[in-house]
Write a protein that binds this DNA or RNA. Structure first.
Lengths: 66, 66
DNA sequence: TCTAAATGTAAAGTTTGTTTTACTTTTGTG
DNA sequence: CACAAAAGTAAAACAAACTTTACATTTAGA
């Protein structure tokens, strides 16, 4: 799975730390997500989509390998 | 987080086992999700939304406590 | 009612998400 | 350049997702 969190952060002018605090996770969790180190839980992705006011599917994308 | 997987299964006339096989998890995983035993990964929820041809937010909902 | 299919549940084990701490590297701005 | 903020990274520890096996309960149909 891939995501466009970094782009959304740029649009909203937020740092990784800002986003982390806004949704209640550690900064490393945001960083790892952006670097595709792991797949976040659905609660996390829903919170991020909600914060950025976008459908979840516009931020998180399935890949062939998923 | 809550979800309407059971309703979607009914609409598509699928058993828990059918759905499990369709998205590549165990039947117990589907059962546990329906009973809100745990929060699925974003890959799982995306696959389910895709299978049922619905926006993810129409199947998985954040709650106050999330 | 009898039976089979479907669902619910539970425990043990493995894998993966997430946190914490801490340090390095990059980037932007004076 | 110099400094600070932001981003990248890494390892250990813990929490949660997911599997497997196995069995009990419910539901639907002959």
């Amino acid at each position: 799975m891939k995501n466009s969190i970094k782009v959304q952060r740029a649009i909203h002018d937020m740092t990784q730390a800002d986003l982390a605090q806004a949704i209640g996770v550690s900064r490393q969790t945001i960083n790892a997500m952006e670097k595709n180190k792991y797949v976040p839980s659905t609660v996390l992705s829903l919170k991020i989509a909600k914060l950025f006011k976008k459908p979840l599917e516009e931020i998180f994308f399935l890949e062939e390998t998923d």
